[in-house]
Amino acid sequence: SPEEIKAKALDLLNKKLHRANKFGQDQADIDSLQRQINRVEKFGVDLNSKLAEELGLV
């Protein structure tokens, strides 16, 4: 269901964000992850996106 997909995506992105902060990645990478999280919260996951591929939806 779209809600489950959204939850999985947010979980994955939050893990990536945590790792980025923990290991001191570029601020641009961290900002990009934050924008992705905001986009998923607002609009859900686009099944044509790279994120959908990472989640194994495509």
Rank of each mutant, 00 (worst) to 15 (best):
D31S: 07
L47N: 04
A7Q: 13
I30Q: 03
K15I: 08
Q27G: 06
R39N: 13
L12G: 01
K42L: 13
L51H: 02
K15T: 07
K6P: 01
L12M: 09
K16R: 14
E54C: 09
S32L: 14
N14F: 15
I37M: 04
A9Y: 04
D29F: 15
L55C: 02
Q25F: 15
K16H: 04
G44N: 02
S49I: 03
G24D: 05
F23G: 06
G56T: 04
A52C: 04
K50F: 09
E41P: 01
L47T: 06
L33F: 03
I30R: 05
E4G: 08
L12T: 04
A7T: 09
S32Q: 12
K50E: 12
L10F: 01
D46P: 08
G56K: 05
L55Q: 01
Q27I: 07
A28F: 08
L12Q: 04
A20Y: 12
S49F: 03
A9D: 00
S49C: 04
H18G: 07
P2W: 14
S32T: 11
A52M: 07
S1C: 13
N14T: 12
L33P: 00
A7S: 09
D46L: 06
S49N: 03
K6R: 12
N48A: 09
Q27E: 06
K16W: 10
E4R: 08
F43Y: 13
Q34E: 09
K16G: 02
P2T: 11
L47H: 05
L33Y: 04
S32F: 13
V40L: 04
S49V: 02
A9N: 00
E41W: 06
N48P: 04
N48L: 08
K42V: 08
D29E: 15
Q25M: 15
V58Y: 11
N48G: 10
A52L: 07
Q36K: 07
S32A: 14
N14M: 14
V45R: 00
K50V: 10
L13A: 00
I30S: 03
F23A: 09
L12D: 02
G24C: 10
G44D: 02
D31C: 10
A9M: 06
K8A: 11
D29N: 11
D46N: 08
E4D: 12
E4T: 11
L47Y: 08
F23H: 09
D46C: 11
R35D: 13
L47W: 08
A7W: 10
D31M: 07
D26R: 11
K50Y: 10
I5L: 13
K50S: 12
L13T: 00
I30G: 02
R35T: 09
D26C: 13
V40A: 02
L57V: 07
A7V: 10
A28L: 08
S32V: 09
A20S: 04
K15G: 07
A52N: 02
S1D: 11
D11P: 00
N14P: 00
K6M: 06
A28S: 11
K8I: 10
D26W: 05
V45I: 11
D26Q: 09
E54D: 06
I37L: 06
L57A: 04
A20G: 03
A28E: 10
L51T: 03
L55G: 01
E54Y: 08
K8V: 06
E3F: 08
K8G: 03
E3Y: 08
N14V: 10
F23K: 06
L17Y: 03
N48S: 11
L55R: 00
I30L: 06
L33E: 01
L57T: 03
E41S: 10
F23S: 09
N38V: 12
V58T: 13
K15C: 15
E4C: 14
I37Q: 01
K42G: 04
L33M: 04
V40P: 00
I30N: 03
R19V: 08
G44Y: 02
L51G: 01
G44T: 00
L51Y: 05
Q27W: 08
A52K: 01
R39V: 10
D31Y: 05
G44L: 02
S32W: 14
L57F: 11
L47S: 06
P2N: 12
K50D: 11
E53R: 13
K42M: 12
D29W: 15
K8P: 00
G56P: 02
E3A: 11
L57H: 03
A9E: 00
E3L: 09
K8Y: 08
L10Q: 01
A52F: 08
L12R: 05
L57R: 03
F43T: 03
R39S: 13
D26K: 12
A20E: 02
D11M: 13
D29K: 14
D46A: 06
S32H: 12
L10S: 00
P2Q: 12
K50T: 11
L33Q: 01
V58R: 11
D11A: 14
L47V: 08
V58D: 07
K15M: 13
K42T: 08
E4L: 09
K42Q: 13
V40W: 04
D31H: 06
I30T: 04
A9I: 09
A7L: 12
K15P: 00
V40F: 02
K6F: 03
R35V: 08
E3K: 07
L55S: 02
A9S: 02
N14I: 14
I37N: 00
R35W: 08
D46E: 09
R39H: 15
P2A: 13
R35F: 08
Q25L: 15
R39L: 14
L17T: 01
F43P: 00
I37T: 01
E53V: 14
D11C: 15
D46S: 09
D31L: 10
Q25W: 15
L51E: 03
S1P: 06
Q36L: 15
L12V: 07
K16E: 04
F23V: 08
L17N: 00
R39F: 15
V58I: 12
A28R: 11
F43K: 03
L17M: 06
Q27A: 10
K15F: 05
S1Q: 07
I30Y: 04
P2L: 13
V45Y: 02
P2I: 10
I30W: 03
L10D: 00
G24E: 05
P2F: 14
I5K: 03
Q34T: 10
V40Q: 00
K6E: 02
K22E: 10
P2E: 11
D29Q: 14
R39T: 12
Q34G: 03
L51C: 04
K22Q: 13
E53T: 09
L13Y: 00
K50N: 07
N48V: 05
D46H: 06
S32K: 14
L17V: 03
A9W: 04
A52V: 04
G24Q: 07
L33S: 00
G44F: 01
L12H: 08
H18T: 11
L51Q: 02
D46Y: 05
L33N: 00
E41G: 05
L17E: 00
L51F: 07
V45G: 01
L57Y: 07
L13E: 00
E3T: 07
G56Q: 06
E53G: 07
Q25N: 12
A20I: 06
E53Y: 13
R19S: 08
K6G: 02
A28I: 09
N14W: 15
K50C: 11
D26Y: 06
D29C: 15
V58S: 12
D46T: 07
G56L: 06
F43I: 04
D26V: 09
A20V: 05
D11I: 10
D31N: 08
I30H: 03
A20N: 02
L33G: 01
R19K: 10
K15W: 08
G24R: 07
F23E: 14
N21G: 06
G56R: 05
K42W: 07
L13V: 00
S1Y: 10
Q36N: 04
E3P: 05
A28N: 10
D46F: 05
E41D: 05
E54N: 04
D11E: 14
F43A: 04
S32Y: 15
G44M: 01
D29Y: 15
L57W: 07
S32R: 14
S49G: 06
N21K: 15
A7N: 10
N14E: 06
I5W: 15
Q36G: 01
G44V: 01
L10K: 02
D11W: 12
A20F: 11
L47R: 05
R19N: 11
Q27M: 08
H18S: 13
L55F: 03
K6T: 06
A28M: 10
E53W: 15
D11F: 11
R35H: 09
V40D: 00
